[in-house]
Design a protein around this nucleic acid. Structure first.
Lengths: 342, 342
DNA sequence: TTGTACGCGTTATCAT
DNA sequence: ATGATAACGCGTACAA
């Protein structure tokens, strides 16, 4: 069987409590017995059972980050910052991915009990009518870069995000100012109620404010359900469809950089060029957009600042310094090589 | 406090064991009392404490995947397959990321105890002289896509991988056959003992077999330790250095696609073109390479097959059907637009 | 079908 | 400084 604390105690001829003191760096223990015990721990490969610890402990100083859609490159840099900031506070950091079909709040409730969490960060989930359910959580939590919808209920909720509506307005407006009049968009499927919807709304408003009436023909999405949204494949197929449809347009606003890259490739594959034949703009500011050829004009989210602020707010909540806070960051319009004056 | 099984028992006027039977779908329980109990579970938001469960349970039917360097796009598709295959077996799937400075074997030992794991998949770690330490694990494990070094000790180890040496030989040989004689490589820093080393070795051999003597000037790496290897930034800086050095070359073999993309961008930024001025080849076959403009010639690893096989072998081990098995897959040379005949 | 009681491995409290 | 023991929440063998 597994080596337990009892085994070590027996081996060393001491009580379990003494062993416990040794491995947990308690002050009141003889240095010699401690050395003796630690030696046995080494020799017999003793590893404390975390379940038993968590069961006994009332708290644990760990923060969990729940993430839906891991592998999204937009998230990977954020996590590095989380890790760093959480370590700074001498807390430990637990990353937990939520499967597509799972309910993140249920998962959070589970983890809260199991791990005696101090706080939770929800990364990139979809939170609609879930405020009530969130309130079942007994520990502080914050929604990070999730796209809080502009409904009524963002009071009493902590979040860090950009204003997806405003930022997408900003970049589409930029396209208009470049002289584009026929601007297509690659959007999320109509059922999307999250950032996809907000970004589409920004697109519409920007067009209208520039005297252009949005056209259904130019609002494009991929209906193949097997393709993940926010993927290059999604963008490729949607753009292909758009090109094949024969509608006239001179620019595309893709609601994410990955989609934009996929769309750009579709254009190149059709023998056309970016930005000579079509301008392309994206959203998010991931590295791949910067390194693409041509680099993609996009809205760069200040992810480092957002991540830092996420943790700051969460710890304020934990320390009881504040009530819920929502913070909206400004994105930066980064002009790349994928857009040109018409 | 938290609602526990005792609370539910008291509320329903039954014993804890009855509640336990209800929530665990045991056969011998009255349907009515079960309904009653489940109702109380709902009403009082009872959630079983997983730590207590794991402590009590002797086994749990979960497989853990340990991954070092999450956010590597090469891994994200693999995990989808893992998830699917593991679910097929009615097991649950635990993803655990290992921090850069952590020791994955230590983490594995921890998890084995805490979660009563049935098996472990190590994804993309570095396993050198660690065979001995791995043997401390009491449950089956397998190394997936990790680059098993060609040393002596791969017996008694299960792994799934491509032959990094052979595949990199293959693609460099292809460059030679295209007529390139001055082929640079962007490699891992010299201390790397894993796939970086193997791929560099393949590069050297291919050159020699084509009558070209490898030159130190053409073996390039980025010494900036803050940059993550296998990143675009790493490739960009290394290529920049190469270009600035003024050495003559006509092709670059980058040891990963991300590095290749970074290198390509450096070339474009210097006013040159790919493949007109320089051919570029990568390794791995990630989506971003396919969608890049020009698409990157690369070695495509059959990640779906590899992932499926990883799980298959692991379950064979768990079921005691087999001893350790190592399986080497063939990569496919995918010719993209980034290479041309000289 | 249901209840009682023990034990899982650990930490903390209280004696010693 | 160290030992004995209760408790954490749960599952289960055994008894009823």
């Amino acid at each position: 069987m597994e080596t337990t604390i009892k085994d070590i105690a027996r081996i060393c001829g001491v009580a379990v409590s003494t062993v416990s003191r040794a491995i947990n760096n308690h002050p009141d223990i003889n240095e010699e017995t401690k050395v003796l015990i630690m030696q046995a721990v080494q020799d017999y490969h003793y590893i404390p059972n975390n379940s038993a610890r968590n069961l006994k402990r009332s708290e644990s100083n760990t923060i969990a980050v729940l993430i839906k859609g891991i592998g999204n490159p937009f998230f990977s840099n954020i996590m590095k910052v989380f890790e760093k900031e959480i370590q700074k506070k001498k807390y430990s950091f637990l990353l937990h991915r939520v499967e597509e079909h799972e309910d993140e709040i249920e998962v959070a409730l589970q983890l809260e009990k199991e791990k005696r969490l101090k706080g939770i960060v929800f990364l990139g989930g979809y939170f609609l009518q879930s405020k009530e359910r969130l309130s079942k959580l007994n520990i502080p939590y914050i929604l990070s870069t999730g796209g809080v919808s502009d409904g009524t209920e963002k009071e009493s909720l902590s979040y860090v995000s950009v204003d997806d509506y405003k930022e997408s307005y900003k970049i589409v407006d930029y396209l208009c100012k470049l002289g584009h009049k026929r601007i297509a968009t690659i959007a999320a499927p109509p059922m999307d109620e999250n950032i996809g919807k907000l970004r589409l709304k920004g697109y519409r408003s920007a067009l209208k404010d520039n005297g252009i009436e949005p056209e259904q023909d130019l609002i494009c999405y991929n209906e193949d359900e097997t393709d993940q949204i926010f993927s290059m494949e999604y963008g490729y197929k949607a753009a292909k469809k758009l090109l094949d449809a024969g509608v006239f347009f001179t620019a595309i606003f893709a609601i994410s950089d990955s989609i934009a890259i996929g769309a750009a490739k579709a254009i190149f594959d059709s023998g056309k060029h970016v930005p000579e034949d079509y301008s392309i703009a994206g959203f998010d500011g991931i590295d791949y957009a910067k390194y693409y050829q041509p680099s993609i004009t996009t809205i760069q989210q200040p992810i480092e600042d957002m991540a830092t602020e996420t943790i700051r707010i969460l710890f304020d909540l934990i320390d009881g310094k504040k009530n819920t806070v929502g913070k909206i960051f400004s994105g930066e319009l980064v002009v790349g090589q994928s857009t040109k004056v018409l």
